[in-house]
Design a protein around this nucleic acid. Structure first.
Lengths: 166, 166
DNA sequence: GCGGAAGTTGTAATAGAATAACATCCCTTT
DNA sequence: AAAGGGATGTTATTCTATTACAACTTCCGC
């Protein structure tokens, strides 16, 4: 039986008012862009919002489709990828290589660790910030003279809720 | 300046007689398949050999091309992917999600940890087996009730040789 | 305001990675 | 020899991502 979740568990793990996640992420993104002197255009903001729609990573073509259906526009793939590239560059989203999908960055202010726990059933992805993981990686790398630049951790498994359901 | 490599550093990090890597990998694969009662066919063996050709991960379509050029065959993508699926299933190769590429598994006998240091310059990928990394991951996962199934670590950076050259 | 420069988006075509569906072949077992 | 299962071949297609170029917007100095 899965252990009871602590109140410190990431929001994505528990039921929560998700509209607040989204608005918080958008606010933070606005500020971040102001600070960096770059423009969070309508398109970029919309893509960020779509990515934040849930805690499940979203494919570029899913975003494309939602832009087509919900908004009036019908942009081509490059338009979406460019928006995503922008958001990636400014640490507002992450790309999950194992899923070819994108997800909102939960803590853009910190060093982006790019550590994710991905539930294979409900597809929810939770971002971690475990310095212990990074440290273990750094130490191993140092041992063979490898200079770490972008560590990436993606762990597939079953989240606590899906374990309960099983 | 990068630190001197210890003699325990993985082979892939240093110059070495690579034909021995390959033949050792093939031998081990043969045995593993016998043990498991599955068939290491000519095609599968050939794909494994191609993947082991170097310590740089190889794309499925690269394999395809080499099969076309070096051997007489001209198989379609499904043929190659099926061979790769087989090899993956039996832990004889790994797939690097961040590169869409495949690489020989250095220690199929152990639990496959799927930890890689990938040099962005020479593209060499070194497989690690750091239980410390897995442990850090497990602990973090346990904290939020997540059941780890397939941890995956891919670290992009600069290997020691490429640091020296720079 | 005007014009240019930089940045952003639109559009069409294409490249790259992976799979579906079905046919054929081969090996084993009886 | 026949049957069954596993392996491979073949064709077409899906999904992911990028190249190259055109059009438009925003910003800034004049």
């Amino acid at each position: 039986m899965p252990p009871r979740l602590s109140p410190q568990a990431p929001l994505a793990c528990r039921p929560h008012d998700h509209t607040r996640c989204v608005s918080h992420a958008l606010d933070e993104a606005e500020q971040r862009c102001v600070t960096r002197g770059v423009r969070l255009t309508e398109l970029r903001k919309r893509v960020l919002e779509l990515v934040w729609q849930s805690h499940q990573p979203l494919g570029a073509y899913d975003i494309l489709e939602q832009l087509s259906q919900q908004d009036g526009r019908r942009p081509g793939p490059p338009t979406v990828y460019r928006a995503l590239d922008f958001l990636l560059e400014h640490d507002l989203v992450h790309r999950l290589a194992s899923l070819n999908a994108f997800i909102g960055c939960s803590h853009p202010e910190h060093d982006q660790a790019c550590q994710f726990l991905i539930c294979r059933q409900c597809r929810t992805a939770v971002e971690l910030e475990q310095s212990a993981i990074n440290q273990a990686i750094s130490e191993a790398a140092q041992g063979i003279g490898f200079a770490v630049e972008q560590p990436m951790v993606e762990v597939v498994g079953l989240c606590s809720r899906c374990r309960e359901d099983a």
